[in-house]
Design a protein around this nucleic acid. Structure first.
Length: 452
RNA sequence: GCGAUUGUAGCUCAGUUGGUUAGAGUACCGGAUUGUGGUUCCGUGGGUCGUCGGUUCGAAUCCGACCUGUCGCCCCA
């Protein structure tokens, strides 16, 4: 006997969980569609050459690699190769790590068929060989929207609007944090460490988590001069409204062209957003850096208020993701919503709508051969009215059938034995109140339909 | 990849310095009750004590490795 189990960091989803997950996907998808985005899907596996080197050293380690089919041993020197070298000999495929890189590959490969700007959405699982923790899995879903082939900041603004609409639908209060890589470049330039941009980004990103002192320590470890770290001090304590922060940055960036460009982009985004009736708070946070190093412009991160769960969404603009696949001048901007994080937030805040938990509205009790034929007629009438309903497939004891209805949270049970058949009616039982009445099927249909 | 911690019935957990045949609650199934569930009572079944190895006369209990879950670090949705 094999003990049933699934790989580390993966999960089964029970019907009750799937109903809630589908609610999340459906809600997000509805907003994407309304904003004129089109769906695509890409394969679970990509060639490793597509994936490797796009996510930094750490990312390469977290890629799941797929062993070659056939005799992968042939002609490979197992003795004298390091694990990494061996991997490249015996694996040429890997599971996708995110949806953005496969999207870039898709765009280049299908550029002739696509009309740009291309607005696509994609909701599929991704895999990371990470160590599982709370809210972190090895297989999880991302819901991505991207606009590629347009540099307009209208796109950034639209992504903020989409974010706002999605989380308004969920009833989750959020803060949309924004920043711009050009501002971070400006900071690096101003403190005289322009070539250390990546190190500055990874360190500064942790400010709210580990505090200013530890960030300075890390910057030191990463090779920044004490002088430069001292100059960064003012950037750690920007406060006030977005306008106030921008005004302060204007002064600091007086001699940094790229820094000023970042500021003007933020201003333009905010100006567009102001026309879009966005309810969520939009906060300029210059310590927001995000690990992925392909971002070149705007950066987004969405945090739910009043919960301890980390970011539930993140994204940004990338100017040259398609370059490595041979297509230049194809700037894009996108954002990704983490389905399982949103699930946890909805759960914690008790925000799942209660009406989705009873997908089956009525159960016909099976009394036997003759009675089930009569029940089938009623069942048909309800289904034609779009009411999800079923007939218990066996003549089991009534108590057992009732327990079944209870376990599935079915709100109505319908019974018909010899008496009901003679009168051409059905007994409708409301499982919440326990009340039951003899009615004809049209009346039953109306009563159930009224609860939908 | 590094560190800490966890694992006993489908689920939640007892189990004495290592000592007979490993228990309870709950769920399931059957009955009390052949047209009534979410509240009763009785009964049946269900365990390679995570896996493999070691110490011992004897291991659920002690030791090691691995696997799984959880929590930090790294990184990230």
């Amino acid at each position: 006997m094999v003990k049933p189990s699934i790989p580390k960091g993966t999960r089964d989803f029970a019907p009750t969980e799937m109903i809630r997950r589908n609610y999340i996907f459906d809600t997000i998808k509805a907003v994407f569609k309304k904003h004129a985005f089109l769906p695509i899907e890409t394969p679970s596996m990509e060639n490793l050459s597509t994936l490797m080197g796009k996510y930094g050293e750490e990312g390469d380690r977290l890629l799941f690699k797929v062993l070659n089919s056939g005799d992968f041993k042939q002609g490979v020197d197992f003795e004298n190769l390091t694990s990494n070298q061996l991997t490249s000999k015996i694996c040429e495929k890997g599971l996708r790590y995110d949806l953005t890189v496969p999207f870039a590959r898709y765009v280049v490969q299908h550029q002739a068929e696509i009309s740009f700007p291309f607005k696509r959405y994609q909701m599929q699982p991704v895999w990371r060989a990470d160590r599982p923790q709370k809210g972190r899995y090895r297989e999880f879903y991302q819901c991505d929207v991207d606009v590629i082939g347009s540099t307009s900041l209208l796109n950034e603004a639209e992504l903020m609007q989409i974010t706002d609409e999605i989380f308004t639908s969920f009833g989750i209060p959020v803060v949309i944090k924004i920043n711009n890589r050009k501002i971070l470049s400006g900071i690096a330039e101003v403190v005289g460490e322009a070539d250390k941009l990546t190190d500055i980004c990874t360190a500064i990103d942790k400010l709210d988590k580990i505090g200013k002192e530890k960030v300075c320590e890390e910057l030191k470890e990463r090779g920044l001069s004490c002088e430069a770290i001292g100059k960064m001090d003012p950037f750690f304590c920007f406060c006030g409204s977005n306008e106030e922060k921008l005004a302060q940055l204007d002064k600091v960036f007086a001699n940094s062209e790229i820094g000023l460009k970042g500021l003007s982009e933020i201003r333009q985004m905010l100006a567009y957003a102001a026309q879009m009736d966005i309810k969520a708070e939009i906060e300029l946070d210059i310590t927001l850096a995000r690990g992925l190093n392909y971002y070149t412009g705007a950066i987004f991160e969405v945090k739910a208020q009043n919960v301890s769960i980390g970011s539930i969404s993140g994204g940004g603009r990338y100017d040259d993701l398609t370059g490595i696949f041979g297509l230049k001048n194809m700037s894009g901007v996108g954002i990704s919503y983490g389905a399982e994080r949103i699930y946890d937030v909805l759960n914690e805040l008790n925000l799942f709508p209660t009406n989705i938990d009873s997908p089956i509205k009525a159960l016909f009790i099976n009394f036997g051969e003759k009675e089930e034929l009569y029940a089938l007629k009623g069942l048909q009438a309800l289904r034609q009215a779009g009411i999800a309903s079923e007939l218990y497939p066996e003549k089991a004891k009534i108590g057992k059938q009732m327990t079944y209805a209870n376990a599935k949270a079915v709100p109505f049970v319908i019974m018909a034995g010899a008496d009901e058949i003679a009168e051409n009616v059905y007994t409708l039982k409301d499982m919440n109140s326990g009340e039951q009445r003899k009615l004809n099927i049209a009346e039953i249909r109306e009563i159930i339909a009224a609860t939908l």
